[in-house]
Design a protein around this nucleic acid. Structure first.
Lengths: 190, 190
DNA sequence: AGGAAAACTTACTAATAGGTAAGTTATTAT
DNA sequence: ATAATAACTTACCTATTAGTAAGTTTTCCT
């Protein structure tokens, strides 16, 4: 099963992920990836036939990741607020490297993407939104969280705060992101 | 040949604005603009030396626009909630054409932009944020609005809800945007 | 009417984009 | 040991990109 350089494919995904979060989908090329990996661009095409395939794999990767996270969160004996924190932390980390959430990045380039990718992205969004919504609903039921909106709407508010929060942080600084982060918590804390 | 078009320059700005909001900065070219205007791409270069200059002019255009809006809002004998509505309506309109806010669009491509543009965008953000903050602060002072966060933080929350709201709407539909829009109002309504 | 300036077009660059076909080297299974 | 195959490289290709220099047409001004 193992091949000569098994992690080239994973490395491509890793770098692609970085590039899309730092520069955006339409602003990076196979040359950027191959340069960083010290291979020729044809090698990247070997692993991913085209940019569309690479993006598909990338989004699928996120889906797998979040699916795992959703399972773990469900099983974990954590308070809702701690679960929410775990989720928010991902955005805080992005913020620290001047990167943005892949959903936001893709959303900005959405009208230039092939339909296949659009569908996969919808899948990803539904997954993430569902996860946050569930966490909120459970927290509310257990009395650990307090908010007046429906869990779905509250999830929308939080997601948009975070997604645009990291975008804004690039321009006006991390302080604004921090203010948003804290406010999100206050909004749902009992 | 025929008809002289003195507003070519303005038309370029109009189309550029559309393109950046629909496709993103790195996904449109001078060819896209010249095609739509029925001129050659050199004509676009005549009015704006390069893409950087075009983007600069575009952002400046927004600054002028919002500066005017800020003045009008200050002077207008409107309740704070009505002023806020006027601002939100811009995003609702964007949403209807599957377009996103220029700030969000630029934020996503931020790391590919020249410094000159970055600075201008900061100017734009400060202007818009300041306008929303002021409206919120005034509304609170007059008892027309009620919210617990500082006006600045509340402005951050609203701005991020809207900016990411229109982005999200592209993917998961306008219903989500509508839910966000209504929740924003509820959050500050007395 | 005539000249200057503005608003273009024509006709090119050079660089990069994404992509492919065919050949080479390394790894693995038998 | 060797055949098959995986993981590449070499060497291209075509389309598009932003951009420019030089010439042409249109409009403005006197």
């Amino acid at each position: 099963m193992s091949a000569r350089n098994t992690d080239t494919k994973e490395e491509i995904l890793r770098i692609g992920k970085q590039l899309i979060q730092f520069y955006g989908y339409n602003a990076f090329s196979y040359a950027d990836i191959s340069r960083e990996l010290n291979v020729k661009n044809a090698a990247v095409h070997y692993h991913f036939r085209g940019k569309e395939d690479l993006l598909m794999a990338l989004v699928q990767n996120y889906i797998d990741n979040y699916q795992l996270m959703a399972q773990q969160l469900k099983a974990a004996p954590l308070k809702a607020i701690a679960k929410l924190d775990k989720f928010i932390e991902r955005y805080t980390l992005l913020c620290e490297t001047d990167s943005i959430c892949i959903i936001g990045s893709i959303a900005s380039d959405y009208n230039t993407l092939p339909d296949s990718v659009k569908e996969k992205v919808t899948e990803l969004i539904n997954l993430v939104m569902g996860m946050v919504e569930l966490t909120l609903a459970e927290g509310k039921r257990k009395g650990e969280l307090v908010f007046t909106e429906s869990p779905k709407t509250q999830a929308l508010l939080i997601m948009t705060n975070l997604a645009a929060g990291v975008q804004l942080a690039r321009i006006s600084g991390k302080k604004d992101y921090e203010a948003i982060r804290k406010a999100i918590i206050r909004q749902v804390k009992s």
